[in-house]
Design a protein around this nucleic acid. Structure first.
Lengths: 250, 250
DNA sequence: CCAAAAGTGTTCATTCTACACCCATGG
DNA sequence: CCATGGGTGTAGAATGAACACTTTTGG
């Protein structure tokens, strides 16, 4: 092992005490929560799940769904739990965004929160979850009732930015669509998420050239124009290509 | 505001109790820490700062520098404090990677940690920090003494992957170089970070075409070949271009 | 003179962009 | 027949890859 340069470790700051000499109770005072930005897509519109809070603090405010993590619960599982409770679906596409840890972000105490974003096919999930007092709503992302509770405006904005980046670099868009979709639907999804128009011919060529879509022997029914072919996303093929250095772009 | 679909919020899981009815103490039991993956670049090699632990747990093991966050300390500031203590430099380029929150990742209790990666110009920072018992070492990233303490192998691997992604999509490479650098040095940096060779002519054309570098009226001295022009990165220009939709690639 | 790295130009292939055009369906 | 969106081809521009060549320095 190379060790060209050796420094000494210092703790010059006001807090300069090695933690193992500090009483346990002084540090183990944090609460930890998870906040989920659940995106869905319907009718050429990107939506997000918001709840209306029925309890203090921020009672009556709009907020992202979230919950405190239990001391014996992995945070990944806490996020899955919240999503399952909200949507009834357990295997959503889900990814961490960032951690938010300002001292005063939560009035009840020191609560650090991890943001997650998740993608749902709105058609597919069961809207009949029940049990908690307050309702959950799909809200158009251009119509968020700001300000949201806590620092949720910020958490939402960053999640959206991360989604917009991911959608160009990873094949996550398909998570928002039904199993079977047309290229036109896919294009509209991209246009809605990125606020940008694409040339139909070029969009098709690009997406088909990646070889990630399976052309089904099926077409649209009962449309008053030429029926479009249906495609499905081939996740296994993506994994295979990806391991060989392929990377999804646009 | 659109509210097409209304769900009920439920908490079906084993934990199904709204948190505001639960005793404060049950939730506020977490410790929170920050672990830093500090990258430096020297002699065409990418290095990372590791410490050797002088206290339990994992006494004697190699680890990433990190520390518990104080209950009255913002996590961003905790990361800055650690970096300042380690390197003597306060305004390093720094970014969050992920949160690690498995129940058993820390033997002393439930500690959740936020990963940060930081970039340092090795030449510039003061290596005479002092105060703590143990040494800090620059270690070649191909020569990490695994396993590291805790889940630090994992934290490091993910930070490296994130750096390798960032370097292609954001102008962060310059943070690892001195203020003034040659295009050859820049190319070697990219080659070291990405394990990939670039064609000299094409690399130059691409990077210069972005218009982010200021050509200085200065050249290398005392080299036994044709002296190269020195350049500096123009951050303001980048911000300006970026706000107009430009995006750094490769 | 030589070695070593800086720095530039050209060619050819690939990909991107814009746009025109035809096709299948319901009404 | 029309309107609507599906589906394809092509020309020209822009970009990228490969490679050859010239330049400037120290020794």
């Amino acid at each position: 092992m190379e060790e060209d340069i050796i420094l000494e470790y210092s703790t010059k700051s006001q807090y300069a005490v090695p933690y193992y000499e500090i009483p346990f109770e002084r540090f183990f005072q944090f609460g930890f929560s998870v906040d989920c930005v659940v995106f869905g897509y319907h009718d050429s519109r990107l939506k997000v799940l918001l709840i209306r809070r029925g309890a203090k603090p921020y009672e009556g405010s709009w907020a992202l769904p979230g919950d405190l993590v239990y001391p014996n619960e992995d945070i990944e599982l806490a996020a899955k739990r919240i999503l399952q409770d909200l949507t009834g679906v357990s295997n959503l596409y889900m990814e961490q965004t960032k951690v938010y840890g300002n001292v005063n972000r939560h009035p009840a105490g020191r609560v650090i929160t991890a943001g997650y974003y998740a993608l749902v096919d709105i058609e597919k999930h069961d809207p009949h979850a029940a049990g908690w007092a307050e309702g959950v709503y799909w809200v158009d992302i251009n119509d968020i009732p700001r300000p949201l509770a806590f620092d949720h405006d910020n958490i939402f904005d960053e999640a959206l930015a991360i989604l917009q980046h991911s959608i160009r670099h990873k094949p996550v868009g398909f998570e928002l669509l039904p199993e079977k979709f047309t290229l036109g639907e896919l294009q509209k999804l991209y246009e809605a998420l990125l606020n940008q128009e694409f040339d139909k011919a070029n969009f098709r060529k690009k997406i088909l050239a990646m070889n990630l879509l399976t052309e089904l022997k099926e077409v649209q029914k009962q449309v008053k124009h030429r029926p479009a072919k249906l495609y499905s996303f081939d996740l296994n093929r993506y994994k295979e290509l990806n391991s060989k250095g392929f990377s999804f772009e646009l």
